[in-house]
Every structure is written in C-alpha cells, then in structure tokens.
Amino acid sequence: MALKDYIRERFFPHMWCAGCGHGTVLNSLLRAVEQLGLSKNEIVMVSGIGCSARISGYVDFHSLHTLHGRALAFATGVKLSKPELNVIVPMGDGDALAIGGNHFLHAARRNIGMTAIVMNNKIYGMTGGQFSPLTGIGGMATTAPYASIDRSFDVVEIAKAAGATYVARSTAFHAQECTKMIHDAILHDGFSVVEIMTQCPTYYGRKNKLGEAPDMIKRFKDITTPIGSKAKQENPDLIERGVFVEKNLPEYCAEYDKIIERAKGGA
C-alpha cells in the first residue's frame, strides 16, 4: 500500500507549524506500518491532547483522540477488551510524563501490549511554550522566564524502571532509525516505548535560541550518539540512541486469558 493510503487526505492540511518535528514521526510511523503490512482495520491510534496527539486524526486507522495525559488509560481499555488490535499511542512529553505520568508508569508495569511513542520536544507546544518535565534545568519557557530550575526526567530511564519491555530512543534527524524502532516496537509483545526527540522551532527553538528547524534537526545529530559508542565515553553529555531494553515477559492480556480459564474452573 502506498503511504498516502494510510492518510486521511480530507483532513489535511495538518495543523503543525512549518518545520515541526512531529511530521517526521508521522512519516516514520506510516513507513513502519507499511513494512509490517498491517491492515488498517487492525490498528487503533489512541492519543491525548497536544500538537503531537493530533497525529491520530490524520491517519486512516481507528482513531481515538482523548484527554490530555489519559491516552494510555483509554488505550488500556481498548487493548484489554480486544487484544487482537494493534494499539499505538503517540504522546507529547507533557502528555506522557507530566499529567499522564502515572498512567505511563502503570501501563509499563502491567506490560500491556501496546506502543507508546513519546514525541519529546521538551516543551508544551500546543499551549504556547510552557516548560515540561523534560525541559530541564536552565531551559527557557514562557513559564520559566528566568530559566527553569526543574530537573528533567529521562524518558528511557523511567520506562525501564517502570517495567517496559521494549525501550528505545531516536531523534527526528534519524528518520530511518525511528522507522525501524517503531516497527520493532509494534511487533513487540508487551509494553513498548519509543522516545523520539523532536523539534518545536516555534517555542522551544525560539525561546532557547536554537535557530530554525534545520538547525535544530542538525543539532540532534550533534548531541546524540549510538548506545555504548566511543564518543559517549569521551563526552558523557551525549545522549544515547538505540534500543535500551528488549526482553520477553508475560504480556498482560495473555495473562488475563489465563485468569478467565481459572475463573471458569479450568487449569
């Protein structure tokens, strides 16, 4: 199927600013779905509220655009009630780890079979550039006019600690890598998290004097490095990209099937 067949053309043009990194993620996602050869009827996209969350409306899958931070909770209901569906949850950094942080932890803890794609632009894009839990110390935002004193989360570390069984990170510069990770995350039987560092030139870029979109994208190349690279040893400040966790543990819906058997008097 051609990529455009996965798109709801009638709902374009999209609402993202020129140069927004979220579009790259959409592209990678569609390529991953295409490579997997999934039928559109088998996929449910569940998203919260934010610029990132709007992805769900543009794709021709079943789409559920929900409440800020609550996407994984809605998605849990979708998945557990119909486990044969592929549930993909595109999330903003605020969506996933501020207001929705608790749901993120618990979805990971349950190891329920769905894929969270955290589009980390280190800012609240939709509401106009307030700081997020990913902005970090020294970052500038409309609610941190004197620079942020809030420490930053690390999406990968949180996902790992909470029990996600597939955890990866890439950036909007590394589109092919993103596609591969999303592909593998969807295939993975358990809770998978793919963090993709994206650029918000409109707010994060402007507030933090990082230039235009192309400058920000290029910067992703400069500030990241593959996991365990020599560059990382020499420069510990580099952010690692790659697959951090990939392991098989009992998936929640499959475990619940065993509960049904037990309750019915079997096993």
């Binding site: 079943h62 559920l64 994984l72 909770a73 209901g77 979708v78 557990l80 749901h103």
Partner: peptide, 14 residues
C-alpha cells in the same frame, strides 16, 4: 481517572 477512560476505550470496541 484511568478507570473511566478505560471503560470508554472498551466501549468503543463494542
């Protein structure tokens, strides 16, 4: 919060 969200999701699968 998540309880009501989950039942909405499950309602949509029928």
């Amino acid at each position: 919060i998540s309880s009501i969200c989950a039942i909405v999701g499950a309602s949509l699968t029928g």
